[in-house]
Amino acid sequence: MMRVLTLSRVVWLEMIRRKDLYVLLILLVTLLFVLLSLNIFGLGGVVRYVADVGLLFAWLFAIILGVSTAGRQLPQEEAKRTIYPLLAKPVTRADVVLGKWLGSWTITVSCTALFYLLVVGVVLLRGGGIQPVTLAQGFVLHAVAMGIVTALTVAISTRMTYGAAASVAYILIAGAFSIASRVPELLVHEEGFVARGLLALYYGLPHLELFDLRQRIVHEWGAIPCRTLLFVAMYGVVWVLFLLLLAWMGYRRKRFKRGALG
């Protein structure tokens, strides 16, 4: 466990010193500031759109951060050849995969928490309110979803360069959000090969829409039942474990390229 935590700490230090996440924070602050400054006919207390857009961008930025952080770790270790002195220590490849994932996930979740704080702060500043229990549930599920996103990206990056891994991860995540959830509707008009393909996507991709409580938070629909929260969280954890297992299987026998720095 100490080795895993040590490796995850290195990810943290890298992200804090790389300044990527500051760019995202600044972007979000700028966006929220723009939304705040909009004059909606001089009417006060109009905040739902701020919460909605703010949380949407919190999701987008969290995904960008998660994919860019997780997708960079293993390919960078190989390209910079820092993997050699690392594996020369009593560190297994499973430690490396787990440590990189844990670091990527925890920093993504921490930044997501910051994003949420910013959005809530702006909403409160504008005289609105947010149901705390629903928000907490939304954040927890968002964190689990980021676990899936980072684990997926790490798994892909065991066999691809950073650019390719990030691209594939973005495509799969976009597919999970936009297509997988709508397959039952699409299947009404499809059959044969296309229908089978859609069904494969439906059962093969993680259902990330289950982790998105934004509409409940923004429109104040209240918390979801604990049983549902637990089910969705466990579903997410199972996906994370599965993807990390895939990552380990892809990495454990990998022969690293020698030669010029990539």
């Binding site: 890298e14 010193r17 910079k80 050849r81 820092t82 050699y84 002195p85 020369a88």
Partner: peptide, 12 residues
């Protein structure tokens, strides 16, 4: 172990 080209983490 010291590798041939000792690259390491520039941010550390």
């Amino acid at each position: 172990y010291l590798p041939e080209h000792p690259e390491t983490y520039p941010f550390l």
